[in-house]
Design a binder for these strands. Sequence first.
RNA 1: GCGGGCGUGGCGGAAUUGGUAGACGCAUCGGACUUAAAAUCCGAAGCCGCAUGGCGUGGGGGUUCGAGUCCCCCCGCCCGCACCA
Length: 856
Amino acid sequence: MSRYNVKETEAKWQAVWEQRACFAAREDAARPKYYVLEMFPYPSGRIHMGHVRNYTIGDVIARYKRSKGFNVLHPMGWDAFGLPAENAALEKGVHPAKWTRENIAAMRAQLKSMGLSVDWDREIATCDVEYYRHEQKMFLDFYKAGLAYRKESWVNWDPVDNTVLANEQVIDGRGWRTGALVEKRKLSQWFLKITHFADDLLKGIEELDRWPERVRLMQENWIGKSTGVRFRFEIKGRSERLEVFTTRPDTLFGASFAAISPNHPLAAELAQGNPELAAFIAECNRLGTSEEAIETAEKRGFDTGLKVVHPFDPSWELPVCVANFVLMEYGTGAIFGCPAHDQRDLDFARKYGLAVTPVVIPEDADPATFTIGDEAYTGPGVLRNSAFLDGLDVETAKEEAGKRLEAAGQGERTTQYRLRDWGVSRQRYWGCPIPMIHCESCGVVPVPEDQLPVVLPEDVTFDKPGNPLSHHPTWKHTTCPSCGKPAVRETDTFDTFIESSWYPARYCSPHEEKAGFTREAVDYWMPVDQYIGGIEHAVLHLLYSRFWTRALRHCGYWDITEPFAGLFTQGMVNHETYKDAGTGGWLSPADIVKNDRGEMVRADNGAPVTVGRVEKMSKSKKNVVDPANIIDSYGADAARLFMLSDSPPERDLEWTEAGIDGAWRYISRLWRMITEPPVDLPAAGTPLPADLGDTAQAARRLIHKAISGVSDDLEKFRFNKAVARVRELSNALGELDGKGPGEAWVLREGFEALVRMIGPMMPHLAEELWTQLGHTTLLADQPWPEADAALATDDTITVAVQVNGKRRAEIALPRDCANDVAQATALADPNVARAMEGKPARKVIVVPNRVINVVV
RNA sequence: GCGGGCGUGGCGGAAUUGGUAGACGCAUCGGACUUAAAAUCCGAAGCCGCAUGGCGUGGGGGUUCGAGUCCCCCCGCCCGCACCA
């Protein structure tokens, strides 16, 4: 019995595919293109199971589409700038560039061991100047087009390290390295005007019909469009006015206060002469901005003593409070409070004894008795107690109130977005330099295009805290392109989301030197037909890419609007967690064994182990399984098969030892079944014999049903079902002894179909079996099998017969047989007759080819 | 709090979208091969019952000839978020 030699076989075919450049993509107008892209990895050093799942899914799609005749582009590269490289420099003294490039080399080898159908000739790394130089040019074009600008913005500042911290480096308000209390500092930073496209980005979501609904929803909420009115209150005794935004101008007659954010300039001004208010503001700021804090926080306010005048009634004055639930970042940082129709305002009013006047009465309520309890009324209704708005419905009243404010010059109807402009400056070394120069006489001057690229210097040191670019002896010193006087370069670098915003385009012409991409290449390949990655990028990366695509169109780079026509978000790879029952410390799966009583114990000392819940693989919980070890012992195909089996790809998957064993067993079984058939198979290409017996005939039906089913499953990314169907077919073929008329021929047909169908999932095994079946071609170049529609549908169908909705019998009927024949056959069945207990059928429902229900 | 999703055997999951619930796999049990074990192969199995049969898709109700699927109420779990005026 020959054993399948995984290691040798997988290495052999990987080499063959590479030598023959099987997966090199060329533009070809004659063939339909298909661009499959998995989110490119950050070169952390080793691949993890999430990568294996991601790239397996992508590779199945890529190989399947290839076999269906598409001209497939399936590239790979590295999201190579970012903070971890700088941390490595600080912790291990390795230069970020060296660390990154070594990681890339290691991970490239690991990815190649998966047998991906990637065009490695198109590999890119975003830290290469050949890559990032092009985004410097794009940024300058955005600047010219008014899409990039500079403004003051807050950063987290670590006073000990004298460095800016990213949000994730701030833990409980302290710097992650120094433990020092983080300060807020204002710095001048670069922003991209994503808000310019707010409405377009929102409208575009409607067209993304191959995106998951929940990602579309998350983006919609993130953009957060609301329409309303911006108007100005007159402040008693002061010359300036208080501007507020509201979506409910219809409820203005129910107003009982105005409130401003603790961070509102007016609050700051008043606090100067009022230590109590200053203390209140400080207290509000202390209260964390975490969701939990906000949720449990009580609505609190501080009466400033100021009064504002109601816009529709000069004799009506409202108190102005500083309130902890008003956000400076949204709208104008000030609101008017209508307790009857807004829950937060109601909570606030109840606490401080302010008036609660209902002005919208539900259609079915009695206006004389309608009152508000502890729940604000936010539904539809008719306006009351509202002067000129009385009797109007909510929508009409909103419009009318808006018009009045506009007519009086007090306000205007506007649209408000939650979306804020994208701050792209990072006070970091390992990123793309922002191509700008600061001149004392000329101010900010863009680097002239002929001086691009601004190359990130690699001769830097990390011995001083802060950004090494600022400490570099020469790099930042230059001359002003405008006046020629000495000037300094911008030492900030770009947010790494910029690199990932346009990399799909770079893959289309990765070696182009003059531009980020050529028009011909992107016109042919873009947009990406299928993008695959984790849900964690649902908002930022995917939204920034959509923005960047629009910004490029705005600047005449191309005509496309959306970078990703289809999006698939895969689930996580999880694993059981283990703790030492005595010490409570986390244990790795590798440290655990089953003892002879079937209990989980420590491998080293036999101590009992508590098995915890199944959770996302993470270093901290030690429930990580290294794919390299798995591929080493079971092979890439087994790992790939496991990733595709059982769990639907969008759901979380639990990695288990038993599961990978099962995958390996199936591979061995297929190998044995096909390399040691029960009878000699006819030569490849032997025509269909005339004398097919019933067994052979039935087996052919199963083969063609499987082809049709698997094709359908792969089209819909239902890989778990495709695997189940493939196994079903191999079970059926395994039962044939090949001795009956035509059976040997059918075995060959079945094996070939099987091998073609596992091609995308287990490409090495499939390629090897293809050779074993006597072919000299490459399976990778073979077309997907075609199902014979006549064979894929049964001509006799087993139909269930129900009596009063309960299944009582099964009968065999010719496909699509006449209803009266079906009915007669059903009623003639003895089990049916018995269940009917001699009563006449009142009604018989016949669902063709499905079910017959007799009602008595 | 708001928004979204989910709940099916011991487990992962399937069910042609209102038509035979439990495909396929894992674990389990029985048998064959073996001195034995492993591997492999064959077979059994939702639950209750010896059986005719009954019960069964988180719980309760409804619509329907027929409900895992549709509607209403409740329970539990997961994810996202922004007190958004």
